[in-house]
């Protein structure tokens, strides 16, 4: 850990980060009665987009119609604002610790394109999985663990278990 905090190599102590994140999560529960989330915001954006392009299709669909209500657009939702906050927060931290840089990060053994294809496929899989499990690592696993919900802990075990397995298969992408 270098003392120069602005060269992009400094990260806060993981336990300090964990406690801060825990306090944010606790504040979320204390103030709003619900945990954090990320994939829900993407889902709301998709629902809004589909609804504005093809309203009848969205209303007929068994899945979109779950998240449509008459009075307010699904975009006007807690999670969307929260994710906007995440981007702002990440941006602030990036400026403070000097990490603002356009780049593709990957193992030296693979090319940029290979990394981007893997990222796209990973995103698609994560999107499908998060809808099945009704939440992603933040919404289902992290928030669920804080209230000791069965879905949170089971989903967390499934994510980490399968990630351990698959990361060794795709080892070349990373180290």
């Amino acid at each position: 850990m270098k003392m120069n905090k602005r060269d992009g190599t400094f990260y806060i102590n993981p336990y300090l980060g964990g406690i801060l994140l825990g306090l944010v999560l606790f504040a979320s529960y204390y103030i709003t009665g619900r945990g954090l989330g990320a994939s829900g915001a993407v889902k709301n954006t998709v629902v809004t987009a589909v609804h504005s392009v093809a309203p009848t299709h969205a209303e007929k669909s068994g899945y979109y119609s779950k998240f449509l209500s008459d009075d307010d657009s699904p975009m006007n939702n807690w999670l969307v604002f929260e994710v906007m906050g995440v981007v702002i927060g990440g941006f602030l931290s990036g400026i403070i610790y000097g990490r603002m840089k356009l780049k593709v990060e990957h193992s030296p053994k693979i090319t940029d394109n290979k990394r981007l294809i893997a990222a796209a496929v990973g995103g698609i899989l994560f999107g499908i999985g998060s809808q099945l499990a009704r939440g992603c690592t933040s919404g289902a696993a992290l928030s669920g663990m804080a209230v000791l919900s069965a879905s949170g802990i089971i989903t967390m075990l499934a994510i980490f278990g399968s990630a351990y397995f698959f990361s060794w298969i795709f080892k070349k992408l990373w180290i």
Binding site: L36, A38, S39, V42, V83, V86, V87, I88, G89, G90, F91, S93, G94, R99, M100, K101, L102, K103, A118, A119, A120, V121, G122, G123, I124, L125, F126, G127, I128, G129, S130, Q131, L132, A133, R134, C136, T137, S138, I154, T155, M156, L157, A158, I159, F160, G161, S162, A163, Y164, F165, F166, S167, I169, F170, L173, W174
Partner: peptide
Amino acid sequence: GGLVMGAGFALGGFCPGTSFCGIAIG
């Protein structure tokens, strides 16, 4: 869903929340 997300994690290297952080710093 968790198993599928795990595979996505191993390929993509992010989860949704952290990917938004990554976007913020480029």
